[in-house]
Design a protein around this nucleic acid. Sequence first.
DNA 1: TCATCATATGTGCATATACACACGGCTAAA
DNA 2: TTTAGCCGTGTGTATATGCACATATGATGA
Lengths: 148, 148
Amino acid sequence: MKNNNGHHYPKKPSPCNCLNIRRASRAVTHFYDKILQPSGVTISQLSLLRHLKQVEPITISELANVMRIDRTTLNRNMKPLVDHDLITITPGQDPRTRQIVMTQKGTTTTNSASQLWDKAQASVKDYLGETDLAVLVKLLSKLEALVP
Amino acid sequence: MKNNNGHHYPKKPSPCNCLNIRRASRAVTHFYDKILQPSGVTISQLSLLRHLKQVEPITISELANVMRIDRTTLNRNMKPLVDHDLITITPGQDPRTRQIVMTQKGTTTTNSASQLWDKAQASVKDYLGETDLAVLVKLLSKLEALVP
DNA sequence: TCATCATATGTGCATATACACACGGCTAAA
DNA sequence: TTTAGCCGTGTGTATATGCACATATGATGA
């Protein structure tokens, strides 16, 4: 059962607040991934690339801090990007550290994926409306702060 | 930097709507998992058990439908529950199907975990306030409908 | 009956998430 | 300077997610 915008009517929420946000997260991730598909990267990977673009060169722990993601998760998430030659990891000055840098291919991929990302962003804004989107962002931000 | 409730001030949102909801989802999941820890199940697993309790006996595909989760994901998510003897999977009348049922241990675990879950639910309600929580639920429900 | 189609499930592959632990190198205190 | 502790990283283990493909079986029509 679809409405005029091709979307489906809201599904009955769970009594569990956690399940509701997990379902929404899966749906939105799927929505973005579908739109990003031609670029060859997922929204998770694009997020890494876009953060890296702003702070490279940077170490693994520092990037994990910036992205607010677990360090070991980031470590493994980099693997497909290294395999696809989008980033490189080299030893840092402090031999304990590793420098992450973007490759040329990483830059062009990030740029083309970002154009698709713009469309996804615009779709969500159209779908929720500017006011509701702002409310959502605020609530999500507060929820994230539920955990140190 | 914490406020009176022991929580942290909201963190700066990303420009990416998808990243925001993914971060919030990780945080809330972590919050629930921490509280559920003494019960030995995660919020994802408790969600499965609570759904199952209401509809058992049920086949895999049907439960996946009810839970609005991918069938193959559900299939694999049942493994730890079978291993821990919380559910059992047996052939159904139609030999193509499989019947999922809860064990006695599954019932007691579900009940004790649900008591902890109540606390998590109450914490979130206190944290956001009833009004904002209702707004959130509505927005998340609509977001889930972004995808068929 | 038998060929065909639909349905239910399983699995290979890839990604994402995060805790516990180990290891090696830096740094500061004795 | 030695040593004790901190810091950055890697990895084993476990869970979670979902697409593509394979298999097996019920159901249906010629």
